[in-house]
Design a protein around this nucleic acid. Structure first.
Lengths: 201, 201
DNA sequence: AGCGAGTCTGAAACTTGTTCTAGATTAGCG
DNA sequence: CGCTAATCTAGAACAAGTTTCAGACTCGCT
């Protein structure tokens, strides 16, 4: 299995790659300040020194842009986790530890988290491929944390799916102020018990 | 415990109550047709024979309106379920049956479901009270399905929270075309196993 | 160096959510 | 009934996402 790669339609030139980075950087920066609403397309264009039309050529909508931003952040998180993998004994505990670590990272940039997650859950069918990429990245992170000896069973994949659902939804309730940090922790720990369930059967 | 009731700030006159109903009806109707995007505030106002400013007096934003629409629909679902409660033996199976029944109802109006769920997950802090009401309604429906002998334990409440997370998120992935109906069914059944876990400990 | 296709820019226009305003209407009350 | 405050209406105005367009620029190629 090769390292994850996009279809990579036409390979971008260097300047294009640079533009893309500037855009993503500006997006993340504005998001960090004021969350979803603060990421205004005109301002992203200005801050990344790109015309509005160009911005839209690179990212066909605000949601596309923010989902791409999330991909970026997740990728980094994945790297970080690879370097310092979770230490707990049980697979379920390792997954919980991993997610709590990610959660703590998000707490440091709650506005950025807001922007990315709102975009992710608001995305419609036109963003499905990109959202799917985020989903696959998340799955990869969780499976890494489980450190299975072999390929995951169907049951384990189901458990992972449910964990992802809970993860996303719990974050949303936290971001909208309807759940405390402690509550999210409990939810994560609760859902991770599903993993133990699949191990024993 | 009395039947659920809002703070009911100033009691509405009859005509005001009628206006509110017309608005909610127009909202649901437009949503059924074209989903979230088709619910346009100007059109809702027109179809419910109310000025735009009045619409905004009743519902301070599009998201408020759609979340209120969801409250309405959930209320009805709750009634329906009361009349024909789930028949399965195990509590977890009853919950799964209930959610699958609700899911089938949503499948009949996928566009309406889209509008309501997108609004629900997109809602920011200003809509928290209303979203919370939806959450409490959902919790009530699930607890009803469990038919516990006494009040739920903390553990059981956690399981219910996780079920709700999964329920919402699974619906979102279905609506955005990233998961099949069968997949949602599996996810629901998977997460419902958490209930069995809390029963035995 | 010069050409053609594709890309980028700057600016205006369009759409839809939201706010504002001035004037009618209505509800509740003496 | 007649008054007053609150509510409602019609419509303009504003904000931000998205689209469009004419002209300038860049890239890959010969």
């Amino acid at each position: 299995m090769a390292t994850e790669q996009k279809p990579a339609s036409p390979p971008l030139t260097e300047r294009q790659e640079a533009r893309r980075r500037r855009i993503l950087h500006a997006s993340a920066q504005l998001a960090s300040r004021g969350g979803f609403d603060a990421v205004q397309m005109r301002e992203v264009a200005e801050n990344s020194q790109v015309a509005l039309g160009t911005l839209y050529r690179y990212f066909p909508s605000k949601v596309h842009l923010l989902v791409a931003t999330m991909q970026d952040q997740l990728q980094q998180m994945h790297e970080t986790l690879r370097k310092r993998p979770p230490a707990a004994q049980a697979p379920s505990a390792r997954v919980a530890e991993t997610l709590m670590r990610a959660f703590r990272a998000l707490q440091r940039e709650p506005q950025l988290a807001d922007a990315m997650l709102r975009a992710l859950t608001f995305a419609d069918r036109s963003v499905s491929p990109e959202v799917d990429t985020v989903s696959r990245l998340t799955t990869a992170i969780i499976l890494d944390a489980m450190r299975l000896p072999g390929p995951p069973t169907a049951e384990q994949l189901s458990a992972v799916r449910v964990i992802e659902h809970t993860w996303h939804s719990a974050l949303v309730t936290w971001l909208s102020g309807r759940a405390s940090i402690a509550q999210v922790k409990i939810d994560i720990e609760t859902v991770c018990r599903l993993i133990d369930l699949t191990a024993s059967e």
